[in-house]
Amino acid sequence: MNIFRLAGDMTHLMSVLVLLLKIHTIKSCAGKSYPCSLCFILLESSSGISLKTQELYALVFATRYLDIFTDFISVYNTIMKLIFLGSSFSIVWYIRRHKIVRRSYDKDQDTFRHFFLVLPCLLLALIINEKFTFKEVLWTFSLYLEAVAILPQLILLQRTRNIDNLTGQYVFLLGAYRALYILNWIYRYFTEPHYVHWITWISGLVQTLLYADFFYYYFSSLKNNVKLKLPA
C-alpha cells in the first residue's frame, strides 16, 4: 500500500459519503415546513444523480468483489469491499424505492441505456482477459464497465446544466480517485517486480480521460469563483 493508493481509496470513500449525505439531506428535510437551504435547493431541482451510473457501479462491485469469500487479502481490503458493495446497492435502493428520494430523481433526463455499455464490456472481457476463468472474466468485465460507468452521469450533468455543489464534488472526487490510482500504478511499476497489467492500466486511463472535460470546467469554476456549469 502506497500513499497514492491510500489517497485514491479515501477520495473514493469520500465520493460515496458525499452521495449518502446528499440522500440523507433530501430524506431528512422532506415534509418539514421550513427545509434547510441545502435541501431547498436539492428539492427544487432534480437531484442530478444518475441512477444508471449508480446501477452500473453496483454491477461493477458485485462482479469485481466475487473474491470476497474466497481470497483474503487484508482486513482493510475486506472492509472497503463491503463498504463499496453496501453503499452502491443502498444508493440504488434509495433512488428507486424511497418515497422522497425517488421524487428528486429526474427520470426523463437520465435516459442512457445500460445495455449499450454492459454488452460491449462483457464481450470485450470474454475476448481480452488475463485468464479465461469465470472469476477472472468477471473481474475484467468490472474493469471495463467501471471505465465507462460514469458516462450516464456526465451526460446527465451536461443536460441539467444546473449542477448543485454536492453533485459537482461527487464527480470531482470520483475523478480524483481514478487519477490517484494511475499514480499508484506508476509507483508500483517502479517498486515491485513484474508489475505489468495492461488491461487494468488502459481501462483505468480511459476512465480518467473521461473526466478531463469535467475537470477543466470544475477547476475554471473554482478559479473564477463561479457556479459550476457545463457547456451544452
Binding site: R5, D67, D71, E130, K131, W139, N184, R188, E192, H197
Partner: peptide, 10 residues
C-alpha cells in the same frame, strides 16, 4: 501464487 497483483486493489 499466480494471482495478478491488481487483485489486491479495489
Amino acid at each position: 501464487k499466480n494471482q495478478p497483483s491488481t487483485h489486491d486493489e479495489l
